[in-house]
Design a protein around this nucleic acid. Structure first.
Length: 318
RNA sequence: UGUACAACCUUAUAGC
């Protein structure tokens, strides 16, 4: 059984879902009796690819053979359905979990809050959080983060701010850098620049460290507002602070140049950063954006050439 | 020796 779990896990992490299924079917047919770990590995594997039919079929097999799911099983399924945007299915699993006498942990709460937020059920999400025990609340940063993100995305910034204050004062749960990044992004996208700035200062005051996402979030705000000065200043600060840009950083800058009609600069930037010993590889997004930029400023030939270059580098068009 | 990357943040686009 241990071998089965390992094989299945290996197949999933390398993207070979079908092989995972083959191993599973083969060994089960030969009389290997899957245990809870093997079942969870299979279910989590399917869920991580959004293959909820696959996950459910394993789950049914589990029920038919009288194997009890544990909290990990339920978490995988709820999270899978939350990501797939299926609130009803997530709620079904949640209820089944309670029926079977399995108590939700903070991971389960986080996924369920996500599912509710996707459907703008903020009152219900709040109610769910209220149900958590005191001890759970203090450990539930991701749960509050999921809630805050949902509120920000829906433009309910004031509500998000309220949750931000309450999580600490009422629930004794200190925000982390992710919490700050989400709010920062929310304020920037809502054009509440002053509050965004204040918040960015508060991070260091509170003894937290800016993450790469913090820089990227701010950079995106500057690029979006067409503020090349602050944007360049921030990339400078990034390097001084010892943070290496990633694909998100590069793609944002390339796109910003394209939007300004400066596809030539964007092209040079891509070449500069990806060639000559640099370790960045442009991805589909980089190329797509650059092609879009070239469409506006160059001839079709250049665009086609870039497309061919992308394909020759082993990146398939989406 | 097996689920141990089970949950939370940041980038483009077209179509519907």
């Amino acid at each position: 059984v241990h071998t089965l779990s390992s094989l299945v896990k290996g197949c999933f992490v390398t993207g070979k879902t079908l092989d995972a299924l083959d191993f599973w079917n083969g060994l089960v047919r030969e009389g290997v009796e899957p245990n809870i770990v093997a079942y969870n590995t299979m279910i989590q594997g399917f869920c991580s690819y959004g293959n909820m039919e696959g996950a459910l079929s394993v789950f049914s097999h589990m029920e038919e053979t009288w194997h009890s799911p544990n909290i990990r099983t339920y978490c995988s399924l709820i999270n899978g359905f939350a990501k797939a945007g299926s609130l009803e299915d997530a709620a079904d699993i949640w209820n089944k979990m309670l029926t079977n006498g399995c108590c939700p942990n903070v991971v389960a709460y986080t996924s369920m809050v996500q599912a509710l937020c996707k459907h703008l059920k903020f009152k219900e999400a709040h109610f769910l959080i209220e149900n958590m025990s005191k001890g759970q609340c203090s450990e539930a940063v991701p749960t509050f983060n999921a809630f805050i993100k949902g509120l920000c995305e829906a433009g309910r910034l004031d509500w998000a701010e309220k949750v931000f204050r309450e999580m600490e004062q009422r629930y004794r749960c200190s925000p982390n850098i992710v919490t700050y990044n989400e709010l920062l992004d929310g304020f920037l996208k809502g054009n509440r620049t002053k509050e965004a700035y204040d918040l960015s200062q508060e991070i260091s005051i509170r003894g937290l460290e800016w993450s790469l996402s913090t820089y990227n979030t701010l950079l995106h705000g500057f690029c979006r507002s067409g503020l090349p000065g602050p944007a360049l200043q921030l990339t400078g600060k990034m390097l001084v602070d010892g943070k290496s840009p990633d694909s998100i950083t590069y793609n944002m800058i390339i796109f910003a140049y394209c939007k300004q009609g400066k596809a030539d600069i964007a092209t040079r930037m891509l070449d500069l950063v990806s060639c000559g010993g640099r370790n960045w590889q442009p991805d589909v997004i980089s190329y797509t954006n650059l092609m879009w930029g070239l469409c506006n400023s160059s001839g079709i030939d250049e665009v086609v050439a870039l497309l061919e270059r992308m394909i020759s580098e082993g990146i398939l068009p989406n």
